[in-house]
Write a protein that binds this DNA or RNA. Structure first.
Lengths: 250, 250
DNA sequence: AAGTGGTCTAGACCACGGC
DNA sequence: CCGTGGTCTAGACCACTTC
């Protein structure tokens, strides 16, 4: 609950230099949900109750709940009340390989095939919005499930922008994680092209499959929250070992 | 603009039994955008101006603009104003094959391979939320680009729910279109599983490719706006002839 | 009938953007 | 500086759900 001034007086905008009242209300509710104190389907306090509890006007309490409803955290039913929304399944969620495995309760292992700087990938530089001959960081990793190779993933980024990235222990840690923690890059979304192709000799050797075997190819251009193309990645996934799940809307 | 009562008087809720004032404001702005009178990047009237024009309070004008911003129709910039948002590219959009071709400026052709009712597809019936032995409508079509076959698509639906669907001229018309126009089904979204596989003899013959060639397989469970699983579809797409584009979010 | 969310008023001050 | 959106007040009536 928001602290009150020592001598509470009538005020039109009491909240100077603090977090907005409506966000404090939202946070209070979110905390109760996170703590398991409020479970899906449970009612959250009504607008009038929140207004009284937090000593704000109805419109402010209302703003807090409306925005949470917009975000899908709660559901509002006219005449009935406001209720904690059922946990939403995350669709079309951009995850690194490590994160995908973690979400399945598995540990990701990788084998770094190559890691360095290249200058002759003109088309990829263009996709990243760079000059054709720009220096690009390039990382090739074979992804393993248990001992079995399931995918080859190749990532590219502007070498000058993330200089020390090639030195990170990327056989153990998540590229996404390093970018976000070490470089403060917030990734926002990726545009992906998905098709089927078949394994050439090199892919066949790396993935321990037959040449010509079917592979799922995913090419992704990953954008930061600032709308900047940050990473270009190409992955080849063994048939039968990897399924992409997406939801599309009418 | 909202009509005024003959003798305008002070009122707390003047809008009895009409469309809410904030929606009228939104519609007025939408109309101007649709008419091309307001183009992307153009400013829309400020909160204060809308309040004055429509004779409503600031909060109401504000509500109108906030909701339009939430819907992505306009963008609000603190201290600067509210502007028509650039046209949003449609990502993760659920389209039938005919519609995809149309959106590329091409005409879709199909060859119906089989069309009828089956009763032994227990697993698919289950996915559609039906009893295992339910009667299912089944439609197999080869999709053509020019004269070249590029995909085999197989659709399943509850035969008892859409009885005359098997009689529709589905080599010319869109299944989605028939469902929406003839049966009043509003499709909402589809959950899709995408992977790579290779062609068996039958697929090879139908698609005029070699046995063992790579294919992109998309299995989709399509839901209506009522949240009901309505159509199950499996498509096999020739490598190099079909790319799926999706956007995923962090 | 009581309580809920939905719409709305007529103002206020604050923080930010561009001139 | 002025105009913009962002936050907020202290109420009001309406429409709906639940009892």
């Amino acid at each position: 609950m928001r602290p009150l001034p020592e001598f509470a007086v009538k005020r039109t905008m009491p909240n100077r230099s603090e977090e907005p009242a409506y966000k404090q209300i939202q946070n209070a509710i979110r905390r109760r949900i996170d703590a398991g104190q409020l479970k899906p389907g449970n009612p959250v306090p009504s607008e009038r109750e929140l207004a009284r509890l937090h000593k704000v006007s109805l419109m402010t309490a209302r703003h807090a709940l409306s925005e949470m409803a917009r975000d899908g955290v709660v559901e509002r039913r006219h005449g009935a009340g406001t209720f904690v929304a059922p946990p939403r399944v995350q669709f079309n969620k951009l995850l690194g390989y490590s994160e995908q495995m973690a979400s399945l309760g598995l540990t990701a292992h990788s084998r770094v095939i190559s890691c360095g700087v290249v200058t002759r990938e003109h088309e990829i530089a263009a996709r990243l919005g760079l000059a054709p001959t720009s220096r690009l960081g390039k990382l090739e990793r074979v992804r393993l499930a248990g001992d079995e190779p399931v995918a080859l993933e190749t990532c590219y980024w502007a070498a000058d922008e993330f200089p020390k990235l090639v030195d990170a222990p990327l056989d153990h840690v998540s590229l996404f994680g390093v970018l976000e923690r070490e470089f403060g890059v917030e990734l926002a979304y990726s545009d992906e092209e998905i098709d089927a192709t078949d394994a050439d000799q090199r892919l066949a050797d790396l993935l321990e499959i037959q040449r010509g075997s079917s592979l799922l190819r995913i090419r992704q251009l990953i954008f930061s929250t600032k709308g900047r193309a940050t990473v270009y990645a190409v992955g080849f996934y063994r048939s039968g070992r990897h399924t992409l799940r997406v939801r599309r809307f009418r």
